[in-house]
Design a protein around this nucleic acid. Structure first.
Lengths: 203, 203
DNA sequence: GTCTATAAGTCGATAGAC
DNA sequence: GTCTATCGACTTATAGAC
């Protein structure tokens, strides 16, 4: 049945990226060899170079694809800053929990990018952070939020929300919906103007 | 002046660890060779094995030392849970900003540890997280804090506080004291019972 | 305490057959 | 589109001289 040689009609390209992603996340970019990737894809090492000019381009395309999907997957919903912040926070958690490997390498392997590639990824990351900062800025103007520094609040919230990927397990004590609700509650309270936020959490 | 050979009276050992730390943080454990470490220390590669049984033990000792120092450097001060939380948060930020390289590798290189070594580091990390969780639990009992889930609040706060190391620069817009104060304000508001916290931030 | 030399193997990437 | 074979350089770790 399964051919062990010959053309594979466009399935090898995606498979290379999928295997590389998994191995990079598991062992780290530098610790994974092209031969190891080839073995798990089911081809010889030389064949990988039909799908990537070199090893680092393989990493860069994974990271760029991830960041571009992150930016494409969310646009601010209608409603005020509070509703937008809730949507952003919940979407951020969902998106990141769905892609733990990509999140991991997009953080950890930045230092393995060439300076040009690094600049591209940092630009995309900055664009994403700016969305949250804009929501907070709008809420400050309306008096709905009260933060001492827009940039710090942005970075603090993103760190907290992204950190979920380091400990969440699907077979754990809480569901994704639980986590989403509880984190949103902490986010809201961290930035709400006193007395202006949503009603206190049910308890 | 500087000898290029011969005994160096106990200065080489610390230098090996110092150089390894810097290079591991910069390029990643797997990407750094023993020859590269030796070159920057100023010895030949073989001499490194007088100071470490192998490359992985070098990494493990850096991580273990870091975690043990983290645990030794703080004990709960007197006062109630609110005062303890403030002290914990401020100390966490200070300690981590003082050791960005160690913080980085203690997170990123966990996957390069043997299972036994990994278990040791995870145990130390758990002990540290338990301290924050205990403060939150005590505050809940007193009605000073209000969190929906102790474990999630613990992980959320630690993620936020540790995240400072990813963007803080000493020549940036804000001082360490600024950052400490602003983060503490967000932490306090994220977990305080309504109406029970410290007075609202001056604005 | 450090050196030199070396074992035994892996690395990324390319050339050319099919 | 994939294979085999290969280049030149690099790897961790050890042995034994000084």
């Amino acid at each position: 049945m399964a051919r062990t040689q010959g053309s594979h009609a466009g399935t090898t390209g995606p498979k290379v990226r999928e295997v590389a992603l998994r191995l990079f996340a598991q062992h780290g970019f530098a610790a994974v060899s092209m031969r190891q990737i080839a073995r798990e894809v089911g081809v010889q090492a030389g064949a990988l170079y039909l799908y990537t000019p070199d090893k680092q381009a393989l990493l860069f395309e994974l990271m760029r694809g991830h960041m571009e999907e992150l930016l494409a997957a969310w646009t601010p919903p209608g409603g005020g800053p509070m509703a937008q912040l809730e949507d952003f926070a919940r979407h951020h958690i969902r998106f990141h929990l769905d892609r733990p490997d990509l999140v991991f390498i997009a953080y950890m392997e930045l230092r393995n990018l060439s300076p040009e590639n690094f600049a591209v990824i940092e630009g995309l990351r900055g664009a994403y952070e700016a969305r949250l900062e804009n929501i907070l800025r709008a809420g400050m103007a309306e008096g709905v939020f009260d933060v001492a520094d827009l940039r710090l609040a942005t970075m603090g919230l993103i760190s907290m929300l992204t950190g979920v990927t380091t400990w969440f397990r699907d077979d754990g004590r809480l569901t994704r919906a639980d986590v989403e609700a509880i984190y949103w509650d902490m986010v809201r309270r961290a930035v709400s103007a006193e007395g202006a936020g949503a009603p206190a959490r049910a308890s």
